[in-house]
């Protein structure tokens, strides 16, 4: 196995139940270092929850979750427990997340949004953090917006700041949770373009939950189709998008080609 094929994140027979629904019904899923995976599926199929578990925002009931060869969740006697404290925080440094609704800090300038965590968590000097933040904001095309507050930015600009903020922590895995779903249609491309640029970085692992099928097909090495708490089918985009074998995948994609393919 070459270095680029090492597994960086893995779900082993993971179950999770919310009071009324089964979110994961025995999920097995793994991602290789540097891989770009698009996760598609109907709402409520558990695809966002998968990202939220990796970001330590959500618990699981049973099964193992492994990030970078360390257990985040480990099953013992039928129940899983999560690592805590310093270990948890160290593990979490590997993962960054961009949310559907941005969640920028509204009382901070774009620059401070991006420098906050590097200064507090990575203990960078303010000057160093600002230099890196400016580079990142340049990369996402927001040189002229560094001193603006989120309320002064458009949705697409906010989301690009949010991407820069997550990247500033230099994560190995970037999670994108329907990042263009809350945007006006004309602002979607500017965010997708940033993600296209990021996808060129070989070392960065990207997990992208999306409703943009064309984007998934273009950016992903692999597409995973989720439904009812299970991965129904996965494979290269050419297979999943144009030649799916499972009926449920076919039905889902069909519902997309019939009109609503701009995302929800």
């Amino acid at each position: 196995m070459t270095a680029s094929e090492q597994t960086i994140a893995k779900f082993e027979n993971v179950h999770k139940t919310f009071p009324t629904i089964k979110v994961f019904d025995g999920i097995n899923f793994s991602v290789s270092r540097g891989e770009k995976v698009a996760i598609i599926g109907p709402s409520g199929s558990g695809k966002s929850t998968l990202l939220r578990v990796l970001m330590t925002l959500e618990d699981v009931d049973s099964g193992n979750v492994v990030i970078d060869d360390q257990y985040l969740w480990r099953q013992h006697n039928g129940r899983s427990t999560r690592i805590e404290g310093r270990e948890l925080r160290e593990l979490r440094k590997n993962v960054g997340m961009v949310f559907q609704h941005f969640h920028l800090f509204p009382h901070m300038t774009a620059l401070r949004n991006v420098t906050e965590a590097p200064v507090q968590v990575l203990k960078l000097s303010k000057a160093e953090a600002q230099e890196r933040a400016r580079e990142l904001l340049h990369m996402v095309g927001l040189d002229d917006k560094v001193d603006q507050y989120p309320a002064e930015l458009s949705g697409g600009q906010k989301q690009r700041v949010a991407i820069a903020r997550a990247l500033a922590m230099q994560p190995k895995i970037m999670l994108f949770d329907e990042v263009t779903s809350a945007l006006d249609p004309e602002l979607v491309e500017e965010v997708l373009n940033v993600m296209r640029t990021l996808a060129k970085e070989n070392d960065l692992t990207m997990l992208i939950v999306t409703h943009q099928m064309y984007f998934a097909g273009e950016i992903a090495d692999r597409i995973s189709f989720f439904d009812n708490g299970l991965i129904v089918e996965e494979g290269p985009p050419s297979e999943i998008l144009y030649n799916p074998t499972e009926e449920r995948t076919q039905a889902f994609l069909k519902s997309f080609t019939q009109g609503n393919n701009t995302g929800t």
Binding site: M55, L57, R89, K93, F105, E116, M169
Partner: peptide, 12 residues
């Protein structure tokens, strides 16, 4: 979401 963003950035 503010709490979640803070967790995602590993803030204490």
């Amino acid at each position: 979401g503010q709490w979640e963003a803070a967790i995602s950035l590993d803030l204490t």
